Simulated scan of single mutants.
Amino acid sequence: MHPFNKDEILKILDNAKGNLYYFIYIMLCTGMRPGEIISLTWNDINFEKKRIAVDKTTVRGKIGNVKTQSSVRYVDIIPALEKKLKSLQELNISDTYLFISNYKKPFYSHIVIAKRFKKLLFDINIKDRNLYNLRHTFASSMITAGHNILWISQMLGHKDISITMKVYARFVKEDDEKRIENLSKIVLNF
């Protein structure tokens, strides 16, 4: 697991084009798995309730169940993502899937996108990492920013927060100022 840092993320987003750009952006804003993203339809996006229904994945051209039952979830649409999804919707030539291949069909797998991502990293001189590290980048950046661990765990589709903590605990940091502020809020009830 090697999350991208802020400078790398900005460089990636500045240089990604087309579907790859939107794919990367969705991963960075949701932590969704690549197979879940290529399976998304516009019916899964609810702009009114600001959430995405995640209940399927694509593996070798077959749309099926997500990784685990706890992976069936709603993923929140943060404001920055909402703007990008609406832009993608305006550009999209498919009224069904968010992402379609050059053949105007749903992607067979996320491998084509993963290869394009690796090429992008090579072209912009960023250390080679796989596409899944965008999921790790979402989780680690949200934890580092101090967002609610339960929310992060639910966004990732983890069964419970112990899984999230086991994988991402090293990103939980608190500076002395925040620690001291939190100490002053502790009240004993005995």
Rank of each mutant, 00 (worst) to 15 (best):
K178W: 05
K119W: 05
E177D: 06
L150E: 09
R116F: 06
G157E: 04
K105D: 04
L156T: 01
G146S: 08
V112C: 04
L156W: 06
L134Q: 10
S101T: 11
A139D: 00
H136S: 10
K166D: 10
L121Q: 01
Y97A: 02
R170E: 12
K118F: 02
Y103G: 01
K105C: 01
F107M: 00
H136F: 09
R170W: 06
K105W: 11
Q89I: 05
L91E: 14
N133V: 10
Y168I: 03
S101C: 03
S101Q: 06
S141Q: 11
L88V: 08
N148T: 09
R170K: 15
I111Y: 11
V172Y: 13
F122M: 12
W151K: 07
I152H: 15
F117D: 00
I126L: 02
Q89V: 03
S94D: 09
D160I: 05
K118L: 06
E90Q: 15
R135W: 08
R179T: 12
I180Y: 11
F171D: 03
Y108N: 09
S94R: 04
K105S: 03
R170D: 06
K178V: 10
N133W: 15
R179Q: 11
A114D: 14
T96M: 10
F99S: 07
R170A: 05
R170N: 09
H136M: 11
M155E: 14
A145K: 14
N125W: 11
H110D: 07
L98T: 01
E90M: 15
D160F: 08
F117K: 05
I163A: 04
R116I: 01
D160S: 14
T137C: 03
F117H: 00
G157C: 11
K119Y: 07
V172A: 08
S101L: 01
I124Y: 10
L91V: 08
D175A: 10
